[in-house]
Design a protein around this nucleic acid. Structure first.
Lengths: 237, 237
DNA sequence: TTCCATTGTCGAACATCGTTCTATGTTCGG
DNA sequence: CCGAACATAGAACGATGTTCGACAATGGAA
């Protein structure tokens, strides 16, 4: 037994001395990889290559890929939190709730990989917890029971996550290459649906024109509006 | 050039002769693996082992792991669809919408791996499309524009997916072993939150008791109720 | 019957990934 | 100037998805 070597990734990085790579450099590079080519592009070897180091070095800053992803998410969520906190508060808590949810959604549109992995952190310490708190504080201004407030926030988060899950799934590489535009990509589905039997699929025929060339954000806003309307009703405002 | 060997996974399995394994056997085994130990347990080698065949054989029925997952999902969604279609229709389309959404949610509770991967298929042909249609047909009975109907269904699906995303993330292995109960697991978070600064996190303190020992289904139902209330308002019913 | 294309089966081999381990360099307080 | 802590680097390992070529079984055509 050699005695437990001080497990890396534990110590709070006391003094940084002359480290050519800080943890922030690692996270920034990781986020860059995710932004450029999606979740599957975040490879320890690719990350090491970009940093100009070896794979093993990354394990000094991070206990493994899971923590790497967690911290990368927390990293970008820091920016989202700042954006949310900067926003002015109106006198309508529900309006503020909407504003904050939209900010969160926009961040996920910019970084689709956030959508799938967004739920990893919630409940843990960190920026996701602070975001949750920021949303929740708006419900404190509503006439609700604690349980209703809890449910309200999880409902709003659920709408964001549910809408973001749509965006999270990577297009089949054709559109990422730019060979096929996203509109054309969606158009193929629309065309497929138009060919469905009209008697068996009345609803699909009803909405296929809406789907064709639809706007993800408008779709999200509509869903958000429904739960906010329900919430306003519940709060008796 | 040997001439393109007939790519498997293409042909519609004309006659099955004496095949010891049909595609359904493959899918059933895949679902069994997923049910028993979650998404990471579905390995081509594990699947081959369970089927008593070699890895290569699976590629005859399926083009790769992606299609395997897609078809496994569609396979179980078939059961969900049946359950949904069997349900009696009330005279209130929104009540029916709720019933169907709950059925879908319950299926995901039974199979948490469905939660994360649920969005893979939607929009494609298959049972997810039929489920989408079944939900949508309820909105045809409401006084809405086509666009509103489209948004309504995607909102309901979003609530289900958003709530299911909570369940999808596997607990950190301690609770899967049974060493730690799920309640105790959640309790740890509650305790962590209770230690947060009361001035900085007023909302977390407000809802920590609700979170401790909370019921996922109740949480989902509350979120669903909010969007359904908003929908009812929109339909002017 | 004989032949051959089709329909399947099988597992070795390959590339890639996350992770571990060990060897080595660097820094700084004593 | 030395040793402990800090930090880097990359070979090696096991697991995974996928490819490939060899091979068996089947069934109709010759």
């Amino acid at each position: 037994m050699t005695g437990p070597r001080p497990r890396p990734a534990d110590r709070p990085s006391r003094g940084r001395q002359r480290a050519s790579h800080s943890i922030e450099a690692v996270l920034t590079a990781a986020v860059a990889l995710l932004d450029e080519a999606g979740e599957q592009a975040l490879t320890l070897r690719a990350l090491a290559g970009r940093l100009g180091t070896g794979v093993g070095s990354i394990y000094w800053y991070v206990s493994g890929k899971d923590e790497l992803l967690d911290r990368a998410i927390d990293h970008v969520l820091g920016g989202v939190l700042s954006a949310v906190q900067v926003q002015v508060r109106s006198d309508d808590p529900i309006d503020d709730l909407r504003t904050m949810a939209v900010t969160l959604f926009d961040a996920i549109v910019d970084r689709p990989w956030l959508g799938t992995q967004f739920m990893r952190n919630i409940a843990d310490r960190g920026n996701s917890l602070r975001l949750y708190e920021a949303l929740g504080e708006q419900t404190l201004r509503l006439d609700l029971t604690p349980k209703q407030r809890f449910h309200a926030v999880s409902a709003v988060v659920g709408v964001v996550v549910g809408s973001a899950a749509d965006l999270g799934q990577e297009p089949p590489e054709e559109v990422l290459d730019g060979a096929v535009g996203r509109d054309e990509f969606l158009g193929r589905y629309a065309e497929m649906w138009r060919e469905l039997d009209a008697g068996e699929y009345p609803f699909m025929h009803e909405i296929v024109d809406e789907f064709d060339g639809h706007d993800d954000k408008e779709q999200f806003l509509a869903a958000l509006e429904l739960t906010l309307a329900g919430l306003r009703l519940q709060a008796g405002a």
